[in-house]
């Protein structure tokens, strides 16, 4: 049985190579705020005046600066997560697929529970932060759970051999 929507095994390693640096950078970025905005990712746009509210601006066009550090980090992190999570194992047999599905279910439950707690206990700006994190947490939970299960099994079967 062929699974259609998984990447080949070799992408798993690429996934880890992308994921680890981007995860570390994203974590640092989200903890420190925008201290680490990379200057070369700042672009300046000419923006047309949107409404008369801004008419104290004497220019016809106002200049608008946007830094793309968070966008780049988000894209890198997501690509790393997807490749790590959804690349085939070396031997992707039916039971591994079963474990994959179970882990995915577990990850979605976990994430929903966290969001539930956040809805009840967290308000305002902080809630938006939690929502931002929850764009990535389902995949993070899945990767942790799935790899933990595989690791646990590997360890067990080595013990049987000994």
């Amino acid at each position: 049985m062929e699974t259609q929507f998984l990447f080949p095994y070799r992408y798993k390693r690429i996934g880890w190579f992308v994921l680890i640096p981007f995860f570390a950078l994203s974590l640092a970025y989200s903890i420190t705020g925008q201290v680490y905005d990379l200057p070369f990712l700042t672009f300046t746009f000419q923006e047309e005046q949107k409404s008369s509210l801004y008419q104290d601006d004497s220019f016809l066009f106002s200049l608008h600066q946007e830094n793309f550090t968070n966008e780049v980090l988000g894209i890198g992190l997501l690509i790393g997560l997807i490749l790590t999570a959804f690349s085939k194992e070396k031997i992707e047999d039916e039971r591994i697929k079963h474990l994959r599905l179970e882990s995915l279910l577990w990850a979605v439950y976990c994430n929903s529970l966290l969001i539930l707690v956040a809805i009840i206990f967290i308000y305002g700006g902080l809630f938006m932060t939690v929502m931002t994190y929850s764009m990535f947490t389902p995949l993070i939970f899945f990767i942790l759970r799935f790899n933990w299960l595989l690791w646990k099994e590997k360890k067990q079967s080595i013990q049987i051999l000994i």
Binding site: I91, D93, E94, R95, E153, K154
Partner: peptide, 19 residues
């Protein structure tokens, strides 16, 4: 049978029902 060794082990110890 082209599966992982862990799968055979899981089937033998009745932890997994094969297709």
């Amino acid at each position: 049978v082209k599966v992982s060794r862990q799968t055979i082990n899981a089937i033998e110890s009745n932890k997994y029902i094969p297709s």
